[in-house]
Amino acid sequence: MAEQSNILDTVKAKLIQANTATTSSAGRNAIAADIAKLLTQLDNIAKSTNYNGTQLISNAAGNAAATAMTFQVGEDSTNNAISTSTINANTTGLSLNAYTSITTIGAGSAATAQTTVDTAITDLNKYRSAVGSVQNQVESAVRNLMTQATNVKAAEAIIRDVDYAEESANFNKQNIISQAGAYAIAQSNAAQQNVLRLLQ
């Protein structure tokens, strides 16, 4: 949309030139032809701006708004979604259709067109601002998710990094205690059997 903004700035400069008394009618006709070509280029940019076939700033025909998009930025699609508004950055959406096929322009109509182009520049800047806001939200969500992933990996590493030497020593200690207990029980049972044999 930056190039579209440049195009509108150029159109405005040409309209200012057409509005001056020193510009001849032939000069105004040349300016009108330039404006029509610039606005055609603005529409071409709107039609060709897509990502994986999804139109971003206009529909494919270049005469209506692109559909709003929603980005899921977490595990819960209800609470972790960022949505865009519809964007109609073409001559239809910016109310510039009347100037796409002009062949001549007078000083009075150039002044009127300047006001229309100023409004179009304001609208385009609003679209750019909305896209920038969504971009900032998505980038912030990505940074947050990366921090969460780092924290989970750190916690997993702590759990996995058990001190094997210490645990091996504890296992051997418990094994010896268990064997000693089994030996004591065996000796106790043997003593009871000896007493029973004597009593028989």
Rank of each mutant, 00 (worst) to 15 (best):
K126T: 08
R28N: 05
L8H: 01
A157K: 14
N80A: 11
A68T: 14
N52W: 02
N80I: 00
R28F: 10
A32H: 02
A130H: 04
T115I: 04
I31W: 02
A65M: 10
L196W: 04
Q179V: 07
T147C: 06
L124R: 00
A111V: 06
Q179F: 07
A182L: 09
N189K: 11
V131K: 00
N19H: 00
G106K: 00
S25G: 02
A141F: 02
D123Q: 13
A65K: 15
F71H: 07
S83I: 08
I57N: 00
R28S: 06
K14W: 00
Q114A: 01
T115W: 00
I177Y: 08
S25P: 02
G53H: 05
F71G: 10
E139G: 10
G74P: 10
A110P: 05
D161A: 09
N80Q: 15
R28H: 08
V73W: 03
T54L: 14
T70H: 05
E75C: 05
L94A: 07
T122S: 14
D123N: 13
A30N: 15
F171V: 08
A61H: 04
A98N: 15
S188V: 01
A169W: 04
Q137Y: 06
S85Q: 12
S140H: 04
E156P: 01
G181K: 14
T10K: 11
V162F: 10
Y99I: 01
Y51W: 13
S140Q: 10
A66V: 08
R143C: 03
S83F: 13
L15C: 01
A184W: 12
V152L: 15
T84K: 03
A65Y: 13
T112D: 08
V142F: 06
A169N: 11
K12S: 12
T67H: 04
T54Q: 09
V117K: 02
K173D: 12
K37V: 12
I185A: 09
R28T: 05
Q137S: 15
T147S: 15
V162S: 13
Q187V: 11
V162P: 04
A81M: 10
I35L: 04
T91M: 10
N175H: 14
I159D: 06
D76V: 12
L196H: 04
A81G: 13
A21I: 01
A18G: 02
T22P: 00
S24C: 06
V142I: 09
T91S: 15
T122G: 12
G53S: 06
M146G: 08
A107S: 12
Y127N: 08
G74C: 09
T112W: 02
Y127C: 03
F71S: 07
N29R: 04
N90H: 09
I105F: 02
T20Y: 00
Y183T: 14
K37G: 15
Y164P: 00
S58I: 04
A98M: 03
I176D: 15
A89V: 14
I159Q: 06
S178W: 14
I35S: 01
T100M: 08
T150S: 15
A190I: 07
I185F: 14
A64F: 14
A182P: 08
Y164D: 11
